[in-house]
Each structure stands twice: as C-alpha cells, then as structure tokens.
Design a protein around this nucleic acid. Sequence first.
DNA 1: CCAACTCGTTACGGAGCCGTATTGTTTACG
DNA 2: CGTAAACAATACGGCTCCGTAACGAGTTGG
Lengths: 116, 116
Amino acid sequence: MATELRPARALQLWHAAMLDLVRDRDPDLSVRQMAILLTIYLEPPPHTVRGLAAKLGVTKPVITRALDSMGQLDLVSRRRDDLDRRNVVIQRTVRGALHLERLADLLSTKAAELQP
Amino acid sequence: MATELRPARALQLWHAAMLDLVRDRDPDLSVRQMAILLTIYLEPPPHTVRGLAAKLGVTKPVITRALDSMGQLDLVSRRRDDLDRRNVVIQRTVRGALHLERLADLLSTKAAELQP
DNA sequence: CCAACTCGTTACGGAGCCGTATTGTTTACG
DNA sequence: CGTAAACAATACGGCTCCGTAACGAGTTGG
C-alpha cells in the first residue's frame, strides 16, 4: 500500500493542520518548541540539552528556555543524570504524550477528510 | 489508491518537516504567519484582512502585522480595492508561490523517505 | 449632508523568544 | 591535586509579536 503523498495534497494537509493549530490550541507552541517536543518523543532517549541543540542547529539557551516553557505546561520534565551530574536528561510526561497523540489523530483525520 | 495516513506516520512526517524548517529556513515564519500565507495561496480569492482574521480566529492587527512582515519578505502584497476603497485585497507574489512550492516538495519528499 | 457604521492601520504597554557572554557545577586528566 | 574542559543555566540587551484601544479614511442611509 503505497502511501504516496503528492506535493499539492501535502500542502493542503499542512494548511489544514496549521489552521487547526491556530484556532484551537490554547497557547501556540513555536515551530522550534514543536520540533524539540517531537524529537523528544519520537527519537530514542536519552536526550540532553546539548544533543537537542546540535540536532536542531540552535544554541543551547534556546533548548533550556524551551524546556522551561514546556515544562511549565507539563509537556516534558528534566532530571539530573546520576552517572554524569553535569548532564540533564529530558523526560516525557503523560500530558506530553497525550498532546502528541491528539496531534497525530488530528493530522490523520485531516488527511482522510482531504481524500474524497 | 487509498492514500491513508496513519497517525503514527503522520506524526513522523510532521516531525521531519519541523526539523527541516528549523534547520534550513532563513527566518522562521510563525505558525500564524504560515497559516495566513497558506490560506492566501490555497483558498479562492479575494482575501481581506477582516476575512482572514475571522477565518483564523485572531484579531485584525495580527493580520495587518503579519502582512507587513511577509510583505517585507515579498511573500504577499496588498492593494486597495477600487470598488470599495475601505477594503484591502491581499495578493500573491511570485516569490510567495515559489516558497510554497518548495515547502510542498519538501513535505512530499519527506513523506517518501519515511516510506521504506 | 451628516451621523452611524465599516475597514484597515497605528499607538501603547506587556510578554516571549533570540544570541552572546558569563556563571556555577561537575568531570577529566596531566 | 589542581587546572582545563564540558555541561546546563542565567544575565543582558534587543527584537518581534501580542491584545486592547484609539484613529483616519471611506461608505451608507435617513
């Protein structure tokens, strides 16, 4: 089952998703915050501030501040690494997992609605 | 050819696209700016400030300022409506069309890369 | 023709995020 | 050991965006 996604349709999907994010979502996450959140949940742990900064091509304070914001929303949490106490390990939360689950369903639903 | 997009795969696509946006793009557009830009290019004209504000569920100044920013980047342009000179008609630009074309290709390519 | 309305813009004070530079811990190593 | 390095966090000044409120230009209707 080839799930080919043609450019025009991909753009429509992107559009529908952006509209939903702008209209629904309580406080919009920035593009960077979303990228960080998704990386934490979709890529294998452990995640550190330095690692995320390198992967996204941004400076470390950007990560620290994004974790502050998203931590306040209970979308992620932080813990000192006991093996090397200089490191901070970023952890997932129930609320964060639910948040992304809803986003995934939204995208999938929008894609289906676009089909007819 | 059912182009079904399962939630998990949709999220992976979203993730890959966000990463590319954060890494590549010169100055990131905000989520709101992206939603406005896509609406202008994907929905039938004419587009007005008031209309866009209503569709996105934001205040008019948000639209005006977003058009200022994106106009400076030559992604959209504005023109007074000659029939009712209170209105402003938002128009597309060559640069804006190219920008979205690149985004569409990026999304499609990422979707294909996710397939294996 | 003038008051009421519509539309887009601007003014203002506030909040959030940015990058650079610096700080405080913790670890590595000569 | 004690100095150098690595890590995350913070301080700072600057920029962008926000929402409310006010404004000016244009239109409408009595």
